[in-house]
Design a protein around this nucleic acid. Sequence first.
DNA 1: TTATCATATGAACAGATATTCATATTTAGA
DNA 2: TCTAAATATGAATATCTGTTCATATGATAA
Lengths: 128, 128
Amino acid sequence: MTATARKPRNAAKPVDVCQIECVHRDAVTRAASALKPESTLQRLGEFYKALGDPTRLKIITALVHEELCVCDIACLTGMSESAISHQLRVLRAARLVKYRRHGRIVYYSLADGHVADIIEQGLRHAEE
Amino acid sequence: MTATARKPRNAAKPVDVCQIECVHRDAVTRAASALKPESTLQRLGEFYKALGDPTRLKIITALVHEELCVCDIACLTGMSESAISHQLRVLRAARLVKYRRHGRIVYYSLADGHVADIIEQGLRHAEE
DNA sequence: TTATCATATGAACAGATATTCATATTTAGA
DNA sequence: TCTAAATATGAATATCTGTTCATATGATAA
């Protein structure tokens, strides 16, 4: 997004976004100026990507109800503890889960209420 | 999820889910019985996975405001029309978008209001 | 019909990703 | 201390994914 060259009139806003031919220049201009900042889209994309894997989604939906340790999650999902640990790292990086340590056991839970809200809205959408 | 062998008492519900050692058998049992059906999780996972790519997420957020044709989206995103067409196919398969044809131009829009609601909730979460 | 525009599709390839296996770390108990 | 349990991490690998390029389809206009 570099500075834009101005056009005197008629253009709602100048678009330099567009290298390709576009059919509706005005619609593209509106869409471009309504677009959320790249940083927001990137964060949201990583959030969704983290939820877009079957193993991780199962982990997250399980954690909606109560905290679980790595062992429990492995047990619940039928996957190896190592695989679960790797996936939990992804979920941690995406700030979807938090954890607390009790002795050698690590309990994972959802990072905050927002995550639960989002998942529940998603589930309602998927269930209908 | 096959049929479960019964245990007389004390088990909230029998678990055959668990091949691995698990630390909290009761918690796993509760989590297992609260788990959503595989079909629901799969649909939701595909939904999130579709949103988990930066190009597709940009397309979807743009479509929140108004419908756009393939050309416009290519223009807006700075990607080739072919790439966009491929991504729109993924979004169609995940039932995130619908389209209408007008002459040789195809206009894409969000499949329904739910999608917009979900995206807006996600954006609020990502923006804070 | 023929030419052209807008879009779709298939093959190919580079890059990303999820799991496994081996190993490291951290904590509790002996 | 030493051992074992619970978890984390790194490397390797097989699979998946997104883009490009070439080509096909479908619709309009000439």
